[in-house]
Design a binder for these strands. Structure first.
Lengths: 331, 331
DNA sequence: TATTTCTGCTAAAAGGTTTTATCCGTAGAT
DNA sequence: ATCTACGGATAAAACCTTTTAGCAGAAATA
């Protein structure tokens, strides 16, 4: 059966098209009783407004685009889900645009989004220091950056890497550890530098940072390096991500060092496929990606409504997930 | 500056609106030279047609919805990326709708999609035997199921679990193994049953299937069970996913059994965060999720164009990824 | 020359909604 | 008794495009 239009609704309710529209949207002057009747009839005949027609006129499509370069999806999807989750109840939908790091694709997606009159765009990157396409800055619709830094005066949301690092270190200190080492990823990642700095500030003299890559392999190797030094073994290790932490835990077991007995370990990411499966299960820092998605979604929502949204970088708190690799509590 | 409309284009090119439209779309009768000129002017003034207006008239929004219940995104995002990738060059965009397994949310998303006049819907589930919302079957727009089975006569795409399992077993047999065990997930997963059956058919008498859950833990435990039997140790193990395989590999190392020397191991999923990081790196089966996304996207595309698309279940081949856990080749 | 066919173009309708301007009555103010 | 205000409704314009039907002239046919 043909989809019901507002014309059908008007006829069925015995009013004019404009009255029907006003009644549904609460605009104009309308009698309460009429409103009631129109709404009831709309329900009965199953009328739902055509979003295309509405958007054409109001110039608001109630849709936004989410531009990402992350194919594997480990970071993007939780954020996208967060965005969608917070927006669906406000009637906003999300276009997913995976660019695969290909500038041509990014441009193509961007043009299509503009053709579709999206109300805003959320840009996401997998690496904090990856630069978003410069075209974004010149758009006349709002743009929000999630896990990525936009140009001057733009709106960005990040996990609070420094606070996350402090959370980890302070948890270790609170459970009585004093010689804490930091094994992390490549120094050219912005997040790596931020976390390392927070770690240093927390630990004070004696801080020791080992940069490497994001692999378990590197976790093994770093442990090798640390232990081969002989003297002054650390009693805790703060790792830059969960993969490294897993390598560290395995290496320590190979060396017959107990976790957390001899050395406590804390990770970063709370990537559950790893952190739940290490032995013992890994205490780690969760970046609350979904929360970042929520914030980005709310920011876009506010902007499309013309509300003022504070610009600049907002850092959202990370959360400590306590499992068993630091002793004490269980999951 | 205001967005250019076809009106502006017509004026700038010195033709009527309809000629401009015809020239751009290659419809109607138009002089080649006029077409040329209109297109040039369109380029110059940066005209791009308003997708909303176009969709309103043609009743084709050139957008599709992707409904998924997967929040974590390990399966969905690769597929979604595949869908988007294959459709973007045809001007189709993808709405991402995460339902979190909540029927209310699913219905809400579905209604919004229909309001937006999407040309089709792709439904995706994380578990093969999860049922899609029944409303889907009654829609007048095409629906395609990816990694999920639709009702009678619908169009579904799956990985070919049986072929994948055969690929694994035959690879083991080809490298000289003859006593192959199968450690896998819960029997109530359809995929588990399909793979187990293919394994049995391949191995013949002596086949042995251990059902458990999808964890490393279970991999350890299963090895414990198998070895404690004493006699007749297998010389190869085919695992139901990479997590189990990882547990198996670690357990074997604990038992001082060499992989692949004493026992070869092959996994399933090619979940790189695991399969690349086991020691030795894991030979495993890749389900080619992106390929499934491609196929689903192409199917929807064909359907929206009114082309005939064969209905029923299509199973797409899996791919053997050879690393080092079965001996021989390297990555 | 008269008629048909073809070519290139255009005016106008259509699509479904929101919004503006207007209209008609009635109630209250002068 | 006249004027103003207002409550409730509506016709029509607008949004931007595609498509249908039609028009004028040129070329081909008879």
């Amino acid at each position: 059966m043909r989809r019901q239009t507002i014309r059908d609704l008007a006829k069925a309710a015995g009013v004019s098209i404009s009255t029907a529209s006003n009644a549904l949207n609460g605009t104009g002057r309308t009698n309460a009783e009429t409103v009631e009747r129109v709404k009831r009839v709309a329900e009965e005949i199953g009328f739902r407004p055509n979003a295309l027609a509405r958007g054409l006129l109001t110039k608001r499509s109630h849709a936004i685009g989410m531009l990402t370069n992350d194919t594997y999806g480990r970071l993007t999807l939780p954020m996208a889900a967060g965005v969608s989750e917070v927006l669906v109840d406000h009637g906003l939908s999300v276009f997913l645009c995976a660019t695969n790091n290909d500038p041509r694709l990014a441009r193509l997606h961007l043009e299509t989004l503009l053709d579709r009159q999206v109300d805003g765009i959320i840009f996401t990157a997998t690496r904090l220091d990856l630069k978003p396409p410069p075209e974004l800055a010149k758009l006349s619709i709002p743009v929000v950056y999630a896990f990525a830094e936009g140009p001057e005066n733009s709106i960005s949301f990040f996990p609070d890497d420094a606070q996350g690092a402090r959370l980890a270190v302070e948890h270790l200190q609170a459970s009585g550890r004093s010689r804490i080492a930091h094994i992390t990823g490549p120094e050219d990642y912005l997040a790596v530098r931020v976390r390392a700095k927070a770690y240093r500030d927390c630990v004070g003299p004696g801080a020791e940072v080992l940069y490497g890559d994001w692999s378990e392999e590197w976790g093994h190797e770093a442990i090798e390096q640390i232990l081969s030094r002989g003297s002054d073994r650390p009693d805790a290790i703060f790792c830059g991500n969960d993969e490294i932490a897993r390598g560290v835990i395995d290496a320590l077991r190979d060396k017959n060092l107990a976790v957390p007995g001899d050395i406590a370990v804390v990770g970063f990411d709370n990537w559950e496929v790893i952190s739940r499966q290490t032995r013992p299960p890994l205490t780690t820092i969760d970046m609350e990606l979904k929360e970042i998605g929520h914030s980005a979604g709310l920011a876009i929502l506010g902007l499309t409504r013309g509300e003022a949204v504070p610009s600049g970088i907002t850092r959202l708190p990370c959360r400590l997930v306590v499992r068993q690799s630091c002793g004490g509590q269980t999951d």
